[in-house]
Each structure stands twice: as C-alpha cells, then as structure tokens.
C-alpha cells in the first residue's frame, strides 16, 4: 500500500484509509473520504506540501499529512 506522497504529479488514485485518526477526522470533515478519488496536482515550489484535487475541490496539505493518506 502506498501513501499519497508516492503519487506522481498529475496522477489519480482512490483513498483507501487514513493511518492517523486526527488527520482522518480533519480530512473527512473537509470532504476527503475513503473511497474518494484524489489527484496529486503538483508539489509546492519549495517542497513540504502538495496541491491535491479531491471531489472537485482543491486542497493544500503537508507531506506529513499526505503520509497518513493510504491509497488502494
């Protein structure tokens, strides 16, 4: 199983689970749920964060949080 950081920019995958409950609660409250399709749009210019698209919405999250997002 890979996490969201492993996705290549421009590629999409389906979220299977979250490995950390606090992150899970926050992400899900923003509408990023297990089963959602997530696309890694691009990496931040100076690293540290990624630009993702899930369910027609754009978000910025840190690599630290992205590491808790498990893809199937």
């Amino acid at each position: 199983m890979i996490d969201l950081n492993a996705l290549e920019p421009g590629k999409s995958a389906t979220i299977q689970s979250f490995s950390d409950e606090e992150t899970a609660c926050k992400m899900m409250s923003m509408g990023i749920l297990p089963g959602s399709t997530v696309k890694l749009v691009r990496k931040a210019p100076f690293g540290g964060a990624i630009y993702i698209k899930a369910d027609n919405q754009q978000f910025a999250i840190r690599n630290k949080e992205a590491a808790c997002v498990m893809l199937s």
Binding site: M27, M30, A49, Y51, Q58, F59, A60, I61
Partner: peptide, 10 residues
C-alpha cells in the same frame, strides 16, 4: 495545537 496544513484552495 498540533500544526496542520489542510487548506482549501477555493
């Protein structure tokens, strides 16, 4: 506060 960055890009 744990520092998060989960920001909607409207």
């Amino acid at each position: 506060e744990r520092s998060f960055l989960m920001l909607e890009l409207p």
